[in-house]
């Protein structure tokens, strides 16, 4: 079972990102997928998480993820707020939306780091909602590249499932561009 935690702030598309990933994984043939928001009330701008579980067998575990295989961070300002890295398993992947040079990010030994300037790509493709770039789609591209778990083809289908055709087109371009631009550092 692959356990993925999404970290972001209310309104950034954390929950939708987790859902599209689950949908794509199911389309790709994984029998067990779940996606869940943080349980409870949500506030715009407040740190929150969502989770995706992906497995060959139907999932029987609904409790919250303790240690993730992969953590996806939508908002780099969270790094100083939430200790994300210590909730990633040894050998796990840390995917982050940042405009920093990967060398500037401190990373625990044994983790794989994947950096993408998701905001820049979102803005380029005019993925903007209420004035803010929609970074979850580019991060799905980075996810595909860094994890090798879900292919771009199924993520595309997942986006088409969740979004209207006009909106999906720009998102698919952003997905592919992010896939290309993701920088990976094995640590």
């Amino acid at each position: 079972m692959h356990e993925i935690i999404w970290h972001g702030r209310g309104g950034q598309g954390v929950v939708v990102g987790a859902q599209i990933l689950a949908e794509a994984a199911y389309l790709q043939g994984f029998k067990g997928v779940t996606s869940a928001p943080t349980f409870g009330p949500e506030r715009r701008g407040a740190p929150l998480t969502a989770s995706t579980r992906i497995s060959d067998e139907p999932i029987r575990t609904f409790s919250q993820i303790e240690f993730a295989d992969i953590a996806v961070v939508l908002d780099s300002s969270l790094l100083g707020v939430v200790d994300i890295q210590s909730s990633i398993k040894e050998g796990g992947i840390f995917i982050i939306n940042t405009n920093l040079n990967p060398g500037q990010i401190k990373i625990k030994k044994g983790l794989k780091l994947a950096c993408i300037d998701a905001a820049k790509i979102a803005l380029k493709h005019r993925l903007v909602k209420e004035g803010a770039p929609i970074v979850n789609t580019p991060l799905l591209g980075a996810f595909a590249r860094a994890s090798n778990l879900i292919s771009l083809t199924y993520l595309e289908q997942g986006l088409k499932w969740k979004l209207s055709p006009q909106v999906a087109a720009g998102n698919i371009l952003a997905l592919k561009e992010a896939y290309e631009q993701t920088i990976i550092i094995e640590n």
Partner: peptide, 12 residues
């Protein structure tokens, strides 16, 4: 059925 645990968790 369990609130949030099932009510808000997506699965096939």
């Amino acid at each position: 059925y369990d609130g949030f645990v099932l009510s808000h968790t997506m699965m096939p």
